[in-house]
Amino acid sequence: MTAPRVQLLLLAKTPLPGRVKTRLCPPCTPGQAAAVAAAMLADTVEVLSAVPAVRRTLVVDGDLAAPVGWGRRPQRGDGLGARLAAAFADTAVPGVATLLVGMDTPQLRIGHLVAAGAALADSAAVLGPAQDGGWWVLGLRDPSMARVLVDVPMSTSDTGAATRAALRDADVATLPTLRDVDTAADAWAVAAACPGGRFARTVAELLPAPAGATS
Rank of each mutant, 00 (worst) to 15 (best):
M1H: 06
M1W: 07
T2G: 00
P4M: 01
P4Q: 04
R5Q: 10
Q7N: 09
L8G: 10
L10T: 06
A12M: 08
T14V: 04
P17Q: 10
G18Y: 12
G18L: 05
R19Q: 15
L24E: 11
L24Y: 03
P26D: 05
P26C: 01
P27L: 00
P30N: 04
P30D: 07
A34H: 09
A34L: 05
A34S: 11
A34F: 08
A35Q: 15
V36R: 12
A39C: 09
M40Q: 15
L41I: 09
A42I: 04
V45M: 15
A50G: 14
A50T: 09
A53H: 13
R56F: 07
T57L: 07
V60A: 07
D61A: 11
D61Q: 12
G62M: 08
D63W: 04
A65K: 10
A65C: 09
G71I: 00
R72E: 08
R72T: 10
G77P: 01
D78T: 14
R83F: 00
A87C: 08
A92S: 13
P94H: 06
V96H: 04
V96K: 05
L100G: 08
V101N: 02
T105R: 14
Q107I: 09
L108K: 13
G117D: 10
G117N: 07
G117H: 08
A118S: 14
L120F: 06
L120K: 05
A121E: 10
A121Q: 09
A121V: 03
S123P: 02
A125Q: 09
A125K: 12
V126E: 05
L127R: 12
L127A: 06
A130L: 12
Q131H: 13
Q131A: 15
G133Y: 00
V137I: 14
V137H: 13
L140K: 05
R141N: 05
D142N: 10
M145N: 08
A146M: 04
A146L: 07
R147Q: 11
L149W: 02
V150F: 03
D151L: 08
V152G: 11
S155F: 15
T156Y: 13
D158V: 12
A161G: 14
A161F: 10
A162P: 02
R164C: 01
A165C: 05
L167R: 09
A170C: 15
D171P: 00
A173P: 08
L175M: 15
P176A: 03
V181N: 07
A187Y: 14
W188M: 02
A191V: 06
A191P: 14
A192N: 07
G197I: 10
V203Q: 10
V203E: 07
A204V: 02
L206T: 03
G212V: 02
